[in-house]
Every structure is written in C-alpha cells, then in structure tokens.
Write a protein that binds this DNA or RNA. Structure first.
Length: 440
DNA sequence: TCTGGGGTCCTAGGACCC
DNA sequence: TCTGGGGTCCTAGGACCC
C-alpha cells in the first residue's frame, strides 16, 4: 500500500467569522429607555393577556422570577420588593428592533435578522479594516448604546453555533465588557471555557436532548464537541450532527440574508374573558382570519388550506375540555379575506359545541404558494376578481395608514368584548404622534 | 381569577406507483 | 418451496428556536 499523494493547493480564503449580536433584556430595556425611572428596578414584561413573564430586567432575574412563569404564580413577596409588570407593547418593541437592526446592518457587509432582538453579522475578513474583531464588537456595542439607549452583547466565532456560544460567554462574564471572540483564543484557552459551560446552553440543545445527552455522559459543551459527529448522528438526527460539526468549527449553517416566505401563517389568541357563544367565537375567528390574510398578502402568497381551531383552557381542572381543529382544502388557492371568511365561518359552525367555556381560537393558513405563479382557471370572471383584489388591497392600505382593524369584516365585531387584556400597557412612544415623549 | 404566540425542521410510517 | 424493490408523497408527532 502506498500512501496517496494529494496535491497541496493553497487558496487563501479567510476563515469565516460570524457575530451574534443581541439586545440585553430587550422588552424591559425598551420600556426603560422611555421611562428612565424603571432603569435599575426589577421589571418584567408579560405575554398577551398578561399571562406569562416573557422578559425580565437584570434585577428581576436576581429576585428569582423565572422565564415563562405565569404572572399569577410569581410570589407576592417579589411584588412587595418592588417588582413591577408591564403588558407587552409590541408596536414599541418592533420599532426599536427596526432601529437596532438598521444600525447593525451598516456595520457589516452581510446581516441576517434572526429574531426581534438578535441578528447574525458576517465579519469574515473584517479584521483588516477594524483591527481585532472583538474591538469591532465593542464598537458595535458603543454605537447601539449611544444611538438607541439599548445595550447589546456581541459573540464572535467561526460558525453560527460558536458565535451563539461566544455571546453566552460575553453575557455571563462582565470582564469581557460585552464582546467576546471565541476563535481569537488559543486552543488551550478554549479548553478553559468549553468544559465550564453546560451542554444545555448550546444552540439547538433543549430540555429533552439535554436529558438524553446526560444519560450518555455528555454534560458540557466540551463533551458534546468531542463526542464525534458520526456517533451523534447514529443516535440523533442530522440536526444534532450539524451542531457537533459547528462546535468543531465546520460551518454548516449559512447566513440567510433574505428571509424566505413563510410556509405557514398562524393567527391565534387567548380571550380576555370567558367565551361561550358561537357569535363571540365567530367574531374572534373572523378577526384572526383578517390578520392572517393581511400577513398572507404582505408576503404575496396564496393559501391552499385553511385550518380553524377552538379550545377550552387546558390548565383548568374540573371543567369539560374541548379542543378541536378542522382543515379544509380550498378549491382554489386564494388570499381573499371575504372568501376565506365565508369558509372559516362555516367551519366554525361545524366545530362549535355549546356548553363549553372557550379560551382560545386559532386560524392557520398552509399549503402556501407564490401569488405570481397562480394558474388562471377556465371560467374565471376576471373583472370580478380584479375588483375583489382592489377591495382587499384598499383594506390593507387603510389599515396600514389608520391603524390595524380600522376597516374590517362586519362579522369580526365592533366591541370585541372578548379581546385580550393588557392592563398595564406603556405608550407607543415612537409610533403614535399622540404618545411622543415631551421634554419639560 | 389569572397559564403567549408565533415559527422551523426532521423522522417514521403508510399509501401508492411503477 | 417460492412471495421485489425502490421511489415519492402525505401526515402526525416530536424536537427546537425566540
């Protein structure tokens, strides 16, 4: 056996470098920017209907408030210690998010907005311009602080998974001042960090997988990194295999600058009070349907399947439970609120059973296809269709200009007494003229 | 009394086809 | 005694993310 001789071709290609930038305690921080009295106090922001804790200030975390905890289960002594709760103010958060993302987008050649409060940046090759990438991270942090009043942390690594991990280290270790580059470290220094971080901190490893990994003796990030992609593939899925490769510096997940159109569109909400009648449910279903159709038209898709669901409160013992959804394959894919509304209304009649206390309704649009690729049917009334198109787009325009649901289906109700509770909502400081902060 | 609302991807298994 | 094999599509369910 002779050793194969492989030609060595050296192509200079800089190692990929991703940054993960995220805003610390995003919702709470947005609130504190416009109400500075909140800064430094224990604060939480609640989910819709003021149900669960979805964001906590640093002080609230210190008190011991848990993420996702139902507000009514938060110990009363926390409240005596000054803990305050605000309803979620999505128009404020969305606007602040847009500002942050715009600034970040200008600080790297490529950006992927990953969620409302975090994005990936491609920093490959940028050290030639910026000096160390960690310094660039500090620069990013300073600019966001100065321009928006929010604080971000920057994690840098050769893969997205490593960047996420670096971000975790930046957050937990203040000596790095909020910017940490995992791949600027020597191998030796890396083996300082990785065995000290629980495997559950790895992006893509949730509660279930943590348990299974623990049973295999894999407890830390280092353990998982060293477990071997093949061995992991044999026991788990390709997703986990990718994670192990990514931990080892083999980039499997690319930056996605353009978000692909959604494959399903959901609109569902819990009610602010008990709902028992079909009439109230119909209002809710048609309201959610209108919202789903708006999203559908915004991404220029048509829906092939409509699903309607209603349910009682599963947390509540001692009441009769009912949870049912039905779906309908449409004869022709559409984005027309009126057409889909008629189907939804009929489907609700089939689902509805009296005698239950309903808590939630949902609409799901699936089997989505690009509108541009629509097939024209043989006996189509083109004039009528165009008229309907104009009606839907006029509705969207009016609602964009004068606020959501300025114009809606009659069946979706006016009073909407069932709609969600938001008992402690802050002002729309940045998106409503009447709520602009004033300087005294 | 009060327990969110979105999304994605992968796998397994069955139906069906040639 | 002998009872194919490979492929696709669909659905339900499970896992994850924020």
């Amino acid at each position: 056996m002779s050793t194969p001789i492989t030609p060595s071709i050296s192509v200079h290609r800089p190692q990929t470098r991703f940054a993960l930038v995220d805003v610390n305690n995003f919702y709470c921080s947005c609130e504190a920017v416009f109400n500075p009295k909140l800064a430094g106090t224990p604060l939480v922001v609640l989910s819709n209907n003021d149900g669960c804790v979805v964001a906590r200030s640093a002080e609230a975390k210190l008190l011991g408030v848990k993420m996702g905890q139902p507000w009514h289960q938060v110990p009363p002594e926390f409240k005596q210690q000054g803990l305050r709760a605000l309803s979620s103010n999505y128009s404020l958060y969305a606007d602040m998010s847009h500002r942050v993302m715009t600034i970040l987008g200008a600080m790297a050649p490529r950006q992927e907005v990953y969620s409302i409060d975090e994005c990936f940046l491609d920093l490959t090759g940028m050290e030639r311009l910026t000096g160390s990438l960690r310094d660039h991270g500090l620069h990013i942090r300073h600019r966001i602080q100065q321009w928006t009043g929010l604080t971000v942390c920057v994690g840098i690594g050769s893969t997205k998974t490593r960047a996420k991990l670096a971000n975790h280290i930046a957050k937990k270790n203040p000596e790095w001042a909020g910017s940490f580059d995992l791949d600027a470290l020597s191998m030796e220094d890396q083996t300082h960090w990785l065995p000290r971080i629980a495997v559950s901190e790895v992006w893509g490893v949730g509660g279930r997988l943590t348990e299974q990994l623990r049973a295999m003796g894999i407890h830390t990030v280092q353990d998982l990194k060293d477990a071997g992609a093949k061995c992991i593939r044999a026991r788990f899925s390709v997703v986990m295999e990718r994670t192990v490769k990514e931990l080892n510096g083999i980039s499997c997940l690319d930056l996605e600058e353009l978000s692909p159109p959604k494959q399903q569109i959901l609109s569902s909400r819990s009610f602010g009070r008990h709902v028992t009648t079909e009439a109230d449910l119909r209002e809710a279903v048609l309201t959610y349907l209108s919202r789903a159709c708006e999203k559908l038209r915004a991404q220029q898709s048509l829906a092939g399947v409509l699903q309607v669901g209603i349910r009682t409160n599963p947390f509540k013992d001692g009441i009769p439970q009912y949870n049912k959804a039905t779906s309908c394959k449409l004869p022709e894919a559409t984005d027309d609120t009126l057409v889909l509304g008629q189907y939804a209304s009929k489907m609700l009649s089939a689902l509805y059973k009296p005698g239950y206390i309903y808590q939630k309704a949902s609409i799901m649009l699936t089997d989505l296809s690009p509108k541009a690729a629509r097939q024209i049917t043989l006996f189509e009334d083109t004039a009528a269709r165009e008229k309907r198109e104009r009606l839907n787009s006029a509705m969207d325009q009016v609602n964009r200009k004068f606020g959501r649901r300025s114009l809606s289906l009659a069946g979706s109700g006016i009073e909407k007494t069932w709609s969600m509770k938001r008992g402690n909502l802050s002002a729309a400081y940045t998106t409503d003229w009447r709520a602009l902060p004033t300087v005294q």
